[in-house]
Design a protein around this nucleic acid. Sequence first.
DNA 1: CTGTTAGCGCGTTCAT
DNA 2: ATGAACGCGCTAACAG
Lengths: 334, 334
Amino acid sequence: MKSIAQQLGVTVSTVSRALQDHPRIGLRTRERVHELAEQWGYVPNSTAINLKRKRTFNIGVVLPFLTEQFFSMAISGIEDVAIGEGYSVLLMQSRNDYERERIAISTFIKHGVDGIIVSLASETHNNDHFSTVNNHGLPIVFFDRVARNLPNSCVYADLTEVTTEAVDYLFRRGIDRIALLNGPGTLQATDERLTGYLTALASRGVPVNQAYLKNLDLSRDNTIRAMNELLELPEPPRAVLAFHDYIALDAMQVCRERGLVINQDIFFVSYSNLSFCAYLEQPPIASIEQFPYEMGRKAAEFVIATISDPAATERQINVIRPALTIRPEWRIDQ
Amino acid sequence: MKSIAQQLGVTVSTVSRALQDHPRIGLRTRERVHELAEQWGYVPNSTAINLKRKRTFNIGVVLPFLTEQFFSMAISGIEDVAIGEGYSVLLMQSRNDYERERIAISTFIKHGVDGIIVSLASETHNNDHFSTVNNHGLPIVFFDRVARNLPNSCVYADLTEVTTEAVDYLFRRGIDRIALLNGPGTLQATDERLTGYLTALASRGVPVNQAYLKNLDLSRDNTIRAMNELLELPEPPRAVLAFHDYIALDAMQVCRERGLVINQDIFFVSYSNLSFCAYLEQPPIASIEQFPYEMGRKAAEFVIATISDPAATERQINVIRPALTIRPEWRIDQ
DNA sequence: CTGTTAGCGCGTTCAT
DNA sequence: ATGAACGCGCTAACAG
């Protein structure tokens, strides 16, 4: 800007205004400035602009694993609305580790993002790092794996009802020994699955078999051990509700190794409805679609709205309606 | 900083120095400053610092799809070294679209990143947007899908030899009608696969059947059509080398729908070696591991090195050695 | 219409 | 050991 000002014999401010197409600027001046800017390949220094605007137009995203398709789809949603609103996306994976999540958050605030979107690490057991952010007045929105007891906006799928629906569907198929490979107790979604499950049983008067209920830490070993325990029960389950598709895959492999035939000796229903399941010869008979892309979009819309109007501090909660997706060949004709 | 300076009755400069543990500063002053900083929850404004340093400590990454595990693993590598060196990662997906890629690049330079890492969109047919970056003196490194005719550093897996090895392996299994579901001609890796394939055939004196060679645009429909064409040949192939695992999955499904039994009537070898293949009942008998995490790391190391020392403009090229990974049950005992 | 001045938050030389 | 002053690149309120 300085050089082009000199070259034209005007001030930097004039150039600045010309570049912004300020109304009260000499038409000729404006044209010449634009010309030279083009010619010199002038690119405005956003750091300087941001310093003035007190904004970075960055939004930070912390989530467990990008290798899980659920999250990579969610981030596509985030990315799409962020770009649309002139923001860029800063990314960090927590890998389900509390410490990494903390570091990610503090990196973001040091780095000066305008807002943060989080999907909790499964190992996160306290929320001090988030409270810090809140005290900083930095907008933060949770999605999918939302934090309890935190007054932030969030978007998630309430799995209670759809879980009841899923269990009910299994009942209608004549299956009543149903195990639940649930997640860690730190997640709200774990409660929802359990509640939905218990509701379904209660409404049919089926007694709860505690041995069928497992809380996993989402590690592979843990899943394998739990599935083995289920199969060694005197009355092993005939169906398994798995925390998500990846858990189902591991669990199904355990079954196969023990000589069970999937979708014959034992059935699976899982959460996420990821695309690769379609390629399995014997996929879960149903999966619960949680619309991650939409969740990402909503979460991004929330942060950006809060950034744009910090006054409106009211908590926004968006509950996505998940859908029980039964594979065509396993649908029950009404 | 201002408020804490006032409260202590000193200048902002003093505070600044105290915070940096400047040697020649009053020990008492330093302590008190740190104290107050802690208490007030002072966070240095990185935008201002960056403005001075003329750096943003952001590096931008453009790649086709995060939903492809290959790329999400690569970005983990990038992320790990970036964080280690104090950088943050800005993300954008091109979705294999040229226009989106262009926008991503220009967003990054507007946004003022310190360096860019790119894996090309399959539809990218010209490199003007990258030339612009080069003229700007902004470091840019390509990984995996590298650009031809561009003088930038890059890291990729040379697939020529390993492809020869793969074809040779099929020959040794007694299979000689081998199709190649290759990628778009814009990618260097497409050439490599072809060259490796042809070399293997030549060394055995096997004639080339042009009908077995297909160039895909990586869309699902296109893959399905190509696979159907192969199967309708008078002499359909007995093995298929697929551009990557996702292509293999689609192609395998076509086979299954036509009543073929995978790993009996027809065999697959593919590239990427993604984890979910392990869950298929009949996975490709071999896959070529390209070590995406390592590629990501190397790419990040390159950009950061160039950022730190812009003088050293010499082009760096790192060729990763891919590995033919044959599933245990299909290994040929030597 | 355009120049002057001030300031965003911080680092840094030059004095003292 | 600390203060004063300047500048990073750009915007904007205040003069003319």
